[in-house]
């Protein structure tokens, strides 16, 4: 509870009407007969960690998939720094500085760790080799990948040229997290980033989230681990059945109240 002072400060700046870095309004998405989102709003402010919780199937992943261009919402608006955007694919969101670790990870098993980190934004050799022959700068990418992994402090990834299919589920998750952290420049979205990680690796990833918040990068964190959310998040958006039920803070509501809201045992006006 030593951080409560910081949280108060953060909460007050959010309240002061500054434009959210990322905002969604009335997002709806259906998959055939299944309605995943029913007009969801979301605001993410500078330098905050926004926890996103809800039962299985509440629409958390669908929401962040819309925010990161992996899914196109049926209706609703997305704004980055107040400007309306319409991502047609993940590349569009990436260009806007939004980086995501999806629940399905999105790493390619057949490629090695370094190739996965740079997938879709490969670096080419300088000079004619790069411009005419379009030659990849493999050693430079490996160097950068090693640095990114080290900076994250994930020691479990040792050989950067190891192919991802030979990694464990947790190591794969570490690769996905390292990639997002390395490239996220405006917003970082993490959909259950520690689901497959061991105690130690979870700690490292969550430590990285804290560092990112300190550096001012806002993070959306989805987790089923309530203590983690209550420890890390500045604000918590609770979802149920495709709707935003409430936005609370770790100080305004206890974990139990949060869970009660999430499951519908408790109701407050959203």
């Amino acid at each position: 509870m030593t951080q409560s002072g910081e949280r108060d400060a953060a909460a007050s700046t959010e309240g002061s009407g500054s434009t959210p870095v990322l905002a969604a309004q009335g997002l709806s998405k259906r998959y055939g007969p299944v309605v995943a989102l029913r007009g969801v709003d979301l605001e993410l402010y500078r330098g905050e960690v926004l926890g996103l919780i809800g039962d299985n199937g509440a629409g958390k992943s669908t929401l962040v998939r819309c925010l990161s261009g992996a899914e196109i919402p049926d209706s609703g608006e997305i704004r980055v720094d107040g400007r309306r955007v319409a991502f047609r694919n993940p590349l569009g969101a990436r260009r806007a500085g939004i980086e995501a670790v999806h629940q399905t990870l999105g790493v390619v098993p057949a490629l090695d760790i370094a190739s996965n980190l740079f997938l879709g934004r490969e670096r080419r050799r300088p000079g004619l080799l790069g411009t005419i022959l379009r030659m990849l700068d493999v050693s430079e990418m490996q160097r950068a990948a090693r640095r990114d992994v080290e900076r994250l402090g994930i020691e479990t990834l040792q050989d950067i040229t190891q192919s991802v299919e030979t990694l464990s589920g947790g190591q794969r998750q570490a690769v996905a997290v390292a990639r997002a952290v390395a490239f996220g420049s405006k917003v970082l979205i993490m959909d259950e980033p520690t689901a497959a990680l061991g105690v130690r690796e979870s700690g490292q990833v969550l430590g990285a989230v804290k560092k990112l918040r300190e550096s001012g990068l806002p993070v959306i964190l989805i987790s089923h681990n309530m203590p983690t959310v209550w420890e890390l998040a500045d604000r918590i958006q609770i979802m149920r059945l495709g709707r935003r039920i409430a936005v609370v803070t770790p100080r305004s509501h206890t974990m139990q109240e949060g869970v009660a809201l999430m499951t519908g045992a408790l109701n407050i006006a959203a």
């Binding site: 694919n89 993940p90 390619v108 490629l111 879709g120 990849l136």
Partner: peptide
């Protein structure tokens, strides 16, 4: 790289912006 990526995992490739 993208040929291998798409062959190995089209969904992940799509998420990676390919």
């Amino acid at each position: 790289r993208h040929v291998y990526a798409v062959g190995g995992s089209p969904e992940a490739s799509q998420l990676a912006g390919i």
